[in-house]
Design a protein around this nucleic acid. Structure first.
Lengths: 129, 129
DNA sequence: GTACAAGCTGGAGTGAACTCTAGGTCAAGC
DNA sequence: GCTTGACCTAGAGTTCACTCCAGCTTGTAC
């Protein structure tokens, strides 16, 4: 798979794929005889993993560190696991916060359907609560 | 409530509060006779609202627009509602994606407890799937 | 009445994460 | 063999969302 195909597949620009590899966010990608990137299954798996993690808001720095540790082999497994657990917790917290905000938004949207006077009444009740 | 108290209350720096007001992310805050900000209930409600929305990842630009429309009065209610609904949908999508990533992370963490050979077996099964 | 902490404004600086540009290589079609 | 389009690298530029700074005013404690 060439870089354009991979970009299409995962919704990343070729610039971004270049960038990710350059900064070590994904390990060096397999090349063909003319030096062009030829993503194999494993390369694609990395791209996909990183894309998910980035979309979830996990910082580039953390992921670079994770990838670097991965490349150092098996003896870094415990640290890598710890990093994943840490990030899992942070992610769970972010999701919980966003879920709350979603509910607030739903309330606010519902308020847009109430008349001004109903709204005033609601406010007064909140005042009490 | 002065700016430092509001900052403490909502976990924002005074710099950020200044900035938010400067760019119109919150409407102009009430001032006391010496020109210092004196946040009343409504001012605080705005700060809280914006803080939630920003934490949920809603862009500054969108919120500035929303606040500006709000200040134009009642005739902008329909547009404002539309914006909120739009952002609600985007937020729901982001949450769903993050939820999926959370599950992927859990799987990955679980894999760290399997031995190398079990892992190979798992990979082989994925190959088939 | 003076030191000093907290507030004010406008503008410059920062860090994160891309995104774009320039100048080059490579392979396929005519 | 030459044009064209996709790829390459290194480095510069951009965007977003703050964060910091300088130079000023205000209110409180001694």
């Amino acid at each position: 798979m060439n870089i354009a195909e991979v970009g299409r597949q995962y919704g990343l620009s070729t610039d971004t794929l270049h960038y990710y590899e350059r900064i070590g966010l994904i390990p060096p990608v397999t090349r063909n005889k003319s030096g062009f990137r030829d993503y194999n299954k494993l390369d694609c798996a990395w791209v996909y993993f990183i894309k998910c993690m980035r979309t979830a808001g996990i910082p580039v720095k953390v992921l670079i560190n994770y990838v670097a540790l991965f490349q150092k082999g098996d003896r870094t497994r415990p640290i890598r696991k710890k990093i994943l657990i840490e990030q899992r917790e942070l992610l769970a917290k972010r999701i919980a916060e966003m879920q709350k905000t979603l509910e607030k938004l739903d309330l606010k949207i519902a308020n847009y359907d109430t008349t001004f006077f109903e709204y005033e009444k609601k406010l007064a009740q909140e005042e009490i609560a």
